[in-house]
Computed example of a mutant assay.
Amino acid sequence: MSAAAPALHRTVLRLHRTALACWALFVTAVLGGLGWLGGVSAPHIRHLEATCAPSDLCNIPYVGWVYGERLDNVASVIGYGFLAVAAYAGGALIGREMETGTAQLAWTQGVTPARWLAAKLAVPALALTAGDGVLVAAFRWAWSPHRDLRPGDDWSFGGIFLARGPATPAYALCALAVGALTALLLRRALPALAVSLGATGLLHLVLARVRPYLWPRLTRTEPHAYELDDSAWQVAQGRTAGGGYRATYHPPSHFWPLHLMETGIVLAAAALATAAAFALVRRRTA
Results as ranks from 00 to 15, higher is better:
Thr274Phe: 01
Ala268Pro: 04
Ser253Ile: 11
Ala89Leu: 09
Pro257Gln: 13
Gly68Thr: 06
Thr248Leu: 12
Gln109Met: 12
Leu121Trp: 04
Val30Gly: 04
Arg284Glu: 06
Pro6His: 03
Tyr67Ser: 10
Ala53Met: 11
Ala175Val: 01
Pro251Gln: 10
Ala5Ser: 09
Lys120Gln: 12
Arg209Phe: 12
Arg147Lys: 07
Asp230Val: 08
Pro124Arg: 13
Gly159Cys: 11
Gly33Ala: 14
Ser41Cys: 09
Leu218Ser: 15
Cys58His: 04
Arg14Phe: 00
Leu173Pro: 03
Ala103His: 00
Gly131Ala: 07
Val178Gln: 14
Thr102Asp: 09
Ala286Leu: 11
Glu69Gln: 15
Val66Leu: 15
Gly243Met: 04
Phe278Arg: 06
Ala232Asp: 14
Gln234Thr: 03
Val85Asp: 15
Gly101Asp: 03
Val40Ser: 04
Thr129Met: 13
Ala103Asn: 06
Ala270Met: 03
Ala119Gly: 12
Ser253Lys: 13
Thr102Asn: 10
Ala84Tyr: 01
Tyr62Trp: 15
Thr285Arg: 07
Arg187Met: 09
Ala125Gly: 07
Ser231Leu: 06
Leu228Pro: 00
Ala127Thr: 01
Glu227Asp: 14
Cys22Arg: 10
Ala130Asn: 02
Tyr249Met: 12
Ala7Arg: 11
Thr28Leu: 14
Glu49Cys: 10
Leu260Gly: 08
Leu267Phe: 02
Thr285Lys: 04
His146Gly: 10
Leu8Met: 07
Val136Asn: 06
Gly81Gln: 09
Thr51Asn: 15
Gly133Pro: 00
Ser253Asn: 13
His204Asn: 14
Leu258Tyr: 01
Val40Thr: 05
Leu258Gly: 09
Tyr249Trp: 05
Ala167Met: 13
Arg96Gln: 07
Trp143Val: 12
Leu181Ser: 08
Leu267Gln: 02
Ala189Pro: 00
Arg10Tyr: 01
Cys52Met: 05
Val195Gly: 11
Ala271Gly: 04
Ala279Arg: 15
